[in-house]
């Protein structure tokens, strides 16, 4: 099995994510209120809840893509052995993987990967790892728009492997994946935990990670 550079054994980062009493509104309506969560290195939280319960909203707020009304979000991360040297730039420590795959249909698989590698400032070799992670080697020169839904999702998820960020926010990762690809994804989450990273994963299928904490969001209350 081609695992991510067998990084599992090494603690790559030490990440902490802490949200306190976070409330978020969209279009004037309060979507999530008073959510508190703390993730220590190696923690994974599975976020569940019915449609409209605010899973996506919460993840986007955690990733800094939505303003929060109330509460506080703290990100602490350090790379490599130098845990004493924290990376205070949040853009360098977190990655948000939304339900869309952020890939351009008119670019090939490799062109998309290269673009992300530049944006995430991925180290040399990360591209190759990301390409093999979700078995995209055979599709390198295919236009992303010509990929099946599942392959397209795999391309989108390969960003997680490519970017090597300590804090992951992933929205519905397995919605269009087959069983073996879901397993691959779960394995990368395990590697990520072992490396000292943290992850919040929103899902409504059976997807689960052994030992992951669960957070259940209630249905949206009428405003």
């Amino acid at each position: 099995m081609d695992r991510a550079d067998s990084t599992a054994a090494a603690r790559l980062f030490s990440a902490r994510f802490c949200a306190e009493g976070v409330s978020v509104s969209r279009g004037g309506a309060r979507i999530v209120s008073n959510i508190s969560i703390t993730l220590e290195p190696g923690d994974v939280v599975i976020l569940r809840g019915p449609n409209g319960s605010g899973k996506t909203t919460l993840l986007r707020a955690f990733a800094g893509l939505l303003r929060i009304d109330d509460g506080a979000i703290r990100v602490e991360s350090a790379h490599g052995s130098s845990v004493s040297a924290p990376v205070d730039e949040p853009s360098a420590s977190l990655i948000y993987c939304g339900p869309q795959n952020a890939a351009k249909a008119a670019l090939t698989v490799d062109e998309n990967l290269r673009f992300w590698a530049a944006l995430y400032d991925a180290p040399e070799g990360a591209l190759e790892t990301a390409r093999t992670a979700f078995r995209l080697e055979g599709y390198a020169d295919r236009l992303a728009g010509a990929l099946s839904t599942g392959l397209f999702r795999r391309l989108g998820l390969s960003r997680l492997v490519l970017a090597r960020r300590p804090i992951w926010f992933v929205d519905e990762p397995t919605a269009s994946l087959d069983a073996s690809s879901s397993e691959t994804f779960a394995r990368y989450v395990e590697d990520h935990r072992a490396a000292g990273g943290v992850a919040v994963i929103a899902t409504h299928d059976a997807f689960d990670i052994a030992g992951a904490r669960k957070l259940r969001l209630a249905e949206e209350q009428a405003a």
């Binding site: 986007r60 990733a63 800094g64 893509l65 730039e89 853009s91 977190l94 990655i95 948000y96 939304g98 339900p99 869309q100 795959n101 952020a102 890939a103 351009k104 249909a105 992300w116 944006l119 995430y120 400032d121 989108g156 960003r159």
Partner: peptide, 14 residues
């Protein structure tokens, strides 16, 4: 914005 790239661009841009 529609394909999600804007999220990547915004979260990675210093």
């Amino acid at each position: 914005r529609e394909d999600g790239s804007l999220d990547v661009i915004v979260t990675t841009s210093g």
